[in-house]
Design a protein around this nucleic acid. Sequence first.
DNA 1: GACAGATTGGCAAACGTTTGCCAATGTCAC
DNA 2: GTGACATTGGCAAACGTTTGCCAATCTGTC
Lengths: 337, 337
Amino acid sequence: MPSDQTPWRPIPEDVSLATVAARAGVSVSTVSRIVNGEMRRASPATVARVLEAVEAVGYRPNPVGRALKRGQSQLVAMIAANLDNPAMATIASSTEAALREAGYVMVLCDTHDRPELQDEYLEAMRAQMVSGYVLVAAVPSPGLSELSASRAPAVFVNRRNPGGSGAFVGIDDRAAGATVADYFIDRGRRALAVVFPRLGSSASRDRASGFLARLRERGWADEAIIQAAGDGRSHLQIGYDAGSRIFVGSDAPDAILSVSDQIAYGLNRRALECGLKIPDDCELVSIDGTPLNQWVAPWLKSIEIPYALYGAEIVAGLQLIWRGAPFGERLLPCKFG
Amino acid sequence: MPSDQTPWRPIPEDVSLATVAARAGVSVSTVSRIVNGEMRRASPATVARVLEAVEAVGYRPNPVGRALKRGQSQLVAMIAANLDNPAMATIASSTEAALREAGYVMVLCDTHDRPELQDEYLEAMRAQMVSGYVLVAAVPSPGLSELSASRAPAVFVNRRNPGGSGAFVGIDDRAAGATVADYFIDRGRRALAVVFPRLGSSASRDRASGFLARLRERGWADEAIIQAAGDGRSHLQIGYDAGSRIFVGSDAPDAILSVSDQIAYGLNRRALECGLKIPDDCELVSIDGTPLNQWVAPWLKSIEIPYALYGAEIVAGLQLIWRGAPFGERLLPCKFG
DNA sequence: GACAGATTGGCAAACGTTTGCCAATGTCAC
DNA sequence: GTGACATTGGCAAACGTTTGCCAATCTGTC
């Protein structure tokens, strides 16, 4: 609980519409209208006088007063599953930049993948009268259903809306999986494996199933492919555990698709412990491809998801929705290399 | 610019003090007082009736109205230099959790280390009437000076207030550097180096100078130690570039202190390219020690900074300041391993 | 000179909250 | 019965903004 006896108060934003109005010798309403660009409601002379006064006293509209009146703040909520994941941090960073550019302020919430916390945040953000929601890897929850039903402006990122439709920014996960399948086949790999979280997002699932589907198309039997699903929250651990199962015995794969960088890190660690060298003994391809890889994991080949571009797309999506235009989904192109 | 013709409006928080007041048959003021815990202003019967009504209609105070009246919102601004850095992401994540716990909402701003942007954000946050500021690796700027002068509640993290005093959460950087110096000496290392950013923060400087000072204490001449200062924003690149200078020639060091993980990543990459193996050919110790290291950089030994604990300390600091208590600095203990 | 119509600008209410002040009622002692 | 005093609760203003509506002035035409 915040202390009730706060000795410090923010410097009162001593310059308000009233200050400007007084200086320009007009009423508050006139200033408000001019500040909001409604120029036709005043004579050019008045407009000039008001703008001069605005400049002179350094007036900046108070977002709180405005929010109260308009019933909507300049805040946009980003509700992310796990900030500690570098991919999410990059998304957060680029979104923040794009929002600022558009005149909004980002509020960041980390749900740690927990539905109750997600709902708590959704409620809190609604109370803050946020203008929109950015849901990064949202989990199913009652509050999320309500949100969908309320038609509030929301953009889902990475994971589609678990319960229904909604604007989406991400990549073509199935195609990404398929690309890796083609790559492995064309390289003459014979023993394939795919590692993914058992309780994963739509994204994880689609990547794995796109991979398997393409293999099937090209004549591989499902049984020929090792599928290692891992439990738990940490992709690192999932990868490590999967490695424990995959790398033992004589039928170790010679090529593995890991649906995320972190799973690949875990796999590599276990591979090292088993005396296997990647990529020499077993090729490893992940889908993520954060820039850090080239520094700390040069052994990892990746489908590179352009997370740094997400922010711009997300904000473009929000803006479309705000003006009532439809925004289905935006799948960004990936580089494979 | 946000569209002016927004078709969607947040569901009006249809339940306000007035709703509760009507249902309980009392005035708005009474409800307000009771909701704020001022129980003595009403008879037990009234209190009960009001609380029942609050429950029944599901009343939640509107933070915007409250902020406008109080001149202070429940928002706390975190102004960080670079979210893409995993250490900062961890700090952001833990701070966010601690703030939520305390009933606050975190607004995240990424300055990309640019003073103008930092000032823009400081101004914007002031306009939002935030309750406090968390400045992670703040850079010197006019706005920051103003902030210090205004005595606004602020906690500096990692880097001390570049212009003056202020609450600080971090580690004992000089001691960390000294620890590494002792370690190298005790391990019998003979050719030492330290790599740091030329235009670094107080933290980087202190780590390097703590290292050098301890070496001096123990009889090493400054000239005997390779000091590689790097330019630029990216620590990865700084490390890589420093490696280019350090690893060539015959007098390569057998032990290096890197003041951050990322510099160490860059160093390692360059070492590999030079055919050197870490830690066999050259021991590398960094100060940071993010958990990711054990997965992707097992070759790296680190002073581990407990970033995940920062959030709690930061919020504790803010709360002390809010209630007028002094909060100088809090140096967290590090693990070396 | 009068009237229609456009132009210009102010009044006041409203958003949801907090809080100083006052009014009404109750309690007690004399 | 009267006065002092505590208890209980409401009125109304204020925070900074937006906006519907009305009033005043101006422009032009007959």
